[in-house]
């Protein structure tokens, strides 16, 4: 049984690494279809990343070592996060070493390193991007924490797999507070992954961009790692959403290899639906002005707090 748990653990991380660009590509494809464009192939994200890895890295003259180490740190935090989140099975040996609060902390670490790296060169874009990223982050992070907190209150544990397991096995509790937190979580997901009401992943227009502004000085393998990390982040957020709000179908405590085998296509189906839904949200909503972003996020935060209240 233990070996199965370890296998689940390794499988989850490997799957996250492999499937994250695929999920990214899927969202892009859906978006293109909805917007009447011809869609890029599903594997486009892999191709982009692979191309970047083969290129020569160009680094600004006054870049410090912090700038070079940041992509690795950001990537590593996202990969570690993938090891905590129960996407296929809930019995993850590693997850006892970091609970949901630590997971939020992990995302914060990635954000801080990203922002610091962006400030390192000292260009207008970098600092602008860093400031905006932190502005989005300082409201999105507590909102996410509150979402997790509400789920913890309902299940009386802060360990993410345990939360997921309890929510799935309780006799179908339609907790009203989960409705609020689900809305809050969706808003946080959009903001944290640079999606449309807050940031547009497709634009390079300086007035509006956040994530891309921070990436501007990166090239080649560093950029590849950053893009991979961004894809992983989206994947991780989607999996957190599944774990909290639609936990059914993952391999629970008692389940043997069969349950794990069944969990793989279920996860695939969830991802496909979530990606399509994300594309729909992005297509039907308009991008907000940067100064409307705190309003959006404050709303998310307050919704999460409201979930706490309704509990």
């Amino acid at each position: 049984m233990r070996s199965l748990h370890w296998f689940t653990q390794v499988l989850e991380v490997a799957a996250a690494l492999a499937a994250a660009p695929l999920f990214h590509g899927w969202v892009n494809q859906c978006r293109a279809w909805l917007q009447n464009r011809s869609a890029p192939p599903l594997l486009q994200t892999y191709r982009g990343i692979r191309k970047l890895f083969y290129k020569d890295a160009v680094i600004a003259e006054r870049a410090s070592p912090l700038f070079r180490i940041a992509p690795y740190v950001v990537f590593a935090t996202m990969l570690t996060a993938a090891a905590i989140i129960p996407s296929m099975g809930t019995r993850l040996p590693f997850s006892s070493s970091a609970d949901a609060i630590a997971l939020v902390g992990l995302f914060a670490t990635a954000r801080v390193f990203l922002a610091l790296a962006a400030m390192d060169i000292g260009t207008a874009f970098g600092t602008l991007g860093a400031r905006r990223e932190m502005m989005v982050g300082f409201l999105a992070e507590p909102a996410l924490l509150m979402v997790v907190f509400v789920a913890s209150l309902i299940s009386m544990t802060t360990s993410l797999p345990a939360i997921s397991e309890r929510l799935a096995t309780q006799a179908l509790t339609l907790s009203p507070s989960l409705a609020f937190t689900a809305v809050a979580f969706t808003m946080v997901l959009l903001a944290e992954n640079g999606r449309i009401p807050i940031d547009n992943p497709a634009t390079h227009l300086e007035l509006t961009m956040i994530h891309e502004a921070m990436m501007l000085e990166y090239s080649a393998r560093h950029l590849a790692l950053m893009e991979l990390a961004a894809a992983l982040k989206l994947f991780n957020y989607a999996c957190i959403g599944f774990a909290l709000f639609i936990p059914w179908g993952t391999a629970m405590g008692g389940g043997g290899p069969g349950a794990l085998l069944a969990a793989v296509p279920i996860l695939g189906a969830k991802l496909a639906v979530a990606g399509a839904a994300l594309a729909v949200i992005e297509t039907v909503s308009a991008k907000l002005r940067v100064f409307r972003a705190p309003e959006f996020l404050a709303t998310a935060f307050l919704f999460a707090v409201l979930g706490l209240l309704v509990h």
Binding site: L174, S175, P176, S177, A179, F180, V183, F303, L306, V310
Partner: peptide
């Protein structure tokens, strides 16, 4: 849950 929806 419906009541929560109303509040939402």
């Amino acid at each position: 849950a419906l009541a929560a929806m109303l509040l939402l």
